[in-house]
């Protein structure tokens, strides 16, 4: 079973995403409300996947992605946001993340396609 860490500052989204991913066969092993906690949790929990919000209260999601993926054997990172990927231009590609899924289109299948 693919293990997942959700990093997002909106509790509503974290709860809904957990429900959705668990329903589709993912194992959500942790949640984090900001970038700093997210980076620490990724190091401790060693999830297969980090679902990472772009707009975090402390750090920028792209730099969080860079720091998580810089480590050897790092988890795959998928960026997400309620904004559209076209709002971010080339930032997603340069962040080390596998890709971007708009929050409204989040599903197990969409994630599987990127992994």
């Amino acid at each position: 079973m693919t293990t997942v860490l959700i990093v997002d500052d909106h509790p509503t989204f974290r709860a809904t995403a957990r429900m959705l991913l668990e329903a589709e066969g993912y194992d959500v092993v942790g949640e984090a409300p900001d970038g700093t906690t997210g980076i620490a949790a990724a190091g401790e929990l060693h999830p297969d996947l980090v679902l990472l919000d772009v707009n975090l209260p402390d750090l920028d999601g792209f730099s969080v992605a860079q720091r998580i993926t810089a480590v050897h054997g790092a988890p795959a990172v998928v960026l997400t946001s309620s904004r559209d990927s076209s709002d971010f231009g080339p930032l997603v590609a340069g962040s080390g993340a596998r890709g971007f899924i708009s929050k409204g289109e989040l599903s197990g299948a969409a994630i599987a396609e990127l992994l």
């Binding site: 809904t16 995403a17 289109e105």
Partner: peptide
């Protein structure tokens, strides 16, 4: 955020 949750 509410509309995102709603959509999901």
């Amino acid at each position: 955020q509410r509309l995102v949750a709603l959509s999901l």
